[in-house]
Design a protein around this nucleic acid. Structure first.
Lengths: 243, 243
DNA sequence: CGGTAAATTGACTGCTCTCAATTTACGTGG
DNA sequence: CCACGTAAATTGAGAGCAGTCAATTTACCG
């Protein structure tokens, strides 16, 4: 099982007005003046891979806006393993379920690579939302996007035979986390398995097979170049059943 | 494959102010005056089982608030079958993805039993939302609920061996559609299969087995009494694997 | 260079799919 | 009300995919 420590580093007070990726973030579109009189400060945190941002069932008071890195939303299963229901990267705000009164986080959020996130106090969000109705629409868009991703997750990563699910996961990783060369960091096999709903061994066999077939080429360390075109072709050619 | 006709009946102008289940609906909490000067009327429709409310990819202008009945949200697969990603009943509003400018419906929505729904023109919703900021929160809650259901769907209905998925589906049907006796209408096996991601034959075998073991008792026609307690017990006793 | 965790692989079992046949349910016309 | 036709559900047999358990190899860290 993975290590669910909560190691993270405080990176300082966030400077939303000058955020480099502001156009992506929850607060895009708000006038800069909105940030001068915040009830509570927004802090910038760095979570190293394996660190958890929050735990399912905890009555938190913070939502997180992801600036960089990839994290997983998961449920713990009775047998101590995990079921991953979402992967999120830059631009996504998680923990919005807290906007419903008196609820706890619905998932556990764990960084799968180093994550840079802004911790927004719930009170601040509510305050800003009351002052700037346009923020309401931003929140709606965030949730809509998360519904969409959940549905795609079901359709693409939880349908069909195992190898096709893994193939689609690789393509998703390319969308979410590809560097400028289009190369991706492979997830630990245990995580891949928890994404697509198979055993770790099965995930490993499929990845190893993709490597042998040249669909995945090692670049350095855990970085691989994946032949997206060929993967796509495999997925469309083969009438992939529900297997 | 199921029959995707669009047979439905116009039930007349909706009377939101006196809606019997208003407290559940999208417009709960709005002052009655809000409904007197609607730009466009809200109509009440009756969709018979098998009728589709809307189709994936269509640029519609209507969201639907479900008053009664059960419907499925699905994707069509390349081979002509369906992958069901959600079941929704009373109190849910679907089609909210249209609130994002210039998008089409994300799924196909098909009634699995007779459905009574209010067709709300997008313009009306936007208009009311501008006038009553509290509606914004209602929309958020709707979307949050749909995220939650999608995540539960992944965890409960798309994880583990086939029989446990079907068992959980039966329990879900009890929550969504049980009559006052706690009895449920079984879905067609093809639909069950499209929910849990197995073949129709496998779904059928499992249901038949549940019947033989007395976990499902025929009441009348397609109405069955399901022994929820025993199903729960089976699910918790057995360390159900990812199989 | 050892030690530990992760990844891979092997052997075997068992579950689910496939393809096909049968049975059952149900609506229609007689 | 019954015979019939069609669709749905069930069942069977066999093949193949994925799970289980265990061993081995590889990667990584100090």
């Amino acid at each position: 099982m993975a290590n669910y420590c909560t190691n993270h580093e405080w990176k300082g007070r966030a400077d939303c007005a000058h955020c480099g990726i502001r156009q992506l973030m929850l607060f895009s579109g708000l006038p800069e003046s909105g940030f001068t009189e915040l009830l509570q400060p927004i802090d910038n945190h760095l979570y190293s891979a394996g660190a958890s941002l929050y735990e399912e069932g905890v009555r938190g008071q913070t939502v997180y806006s992801i600036r960089r890195g990839l994290l997983k939303l998961l449920y713990r299963t009775p047998d101590g393993s995990q079921r991953i229901v979402r992967l999120h990267g830059k631009g996504i705000t998680i923990g919005l379920e807290l906007l419903d009164a008196n609820v706890a986080y619905h998932h556990t959020a764990v960084a799968v690579e180093d994550v840079d996130a802004c911790a927004i106090p719930l009170a601040t969000l509510k305050n800003l939302q009351a002052r700037f109705p346009s923020l309401c629409d931003k929140v709606r868009q965030q949730l809509q996007q998360q519904v969409d991703r959940a549905d795609q997750w079901i359709k693409d990563l939880n349908t069909g035979v195992a190898w096709s699910r893994v193939a689609r996961l690789l393509l998703l990783l390319r969308e979410l986390g590809a560097d400028r060369n289009g190369d991706i960091e492979l997830l630990p096999r245990e995580d891949m398995a928890a994404v697509v709903g198979v055993t770790t061994e099965t995930a490993s066999r499929i990845v190893a097979d993709f490597k042998r077939r040249g669909l995945l080429l090692k670049v350095t360390g855990n970085t691989y170049r994946c032949n997206a075109q060929q993967l796509d072709q495999l997925l469309t050619e083969t009438g992939v059943s529900t297997g």
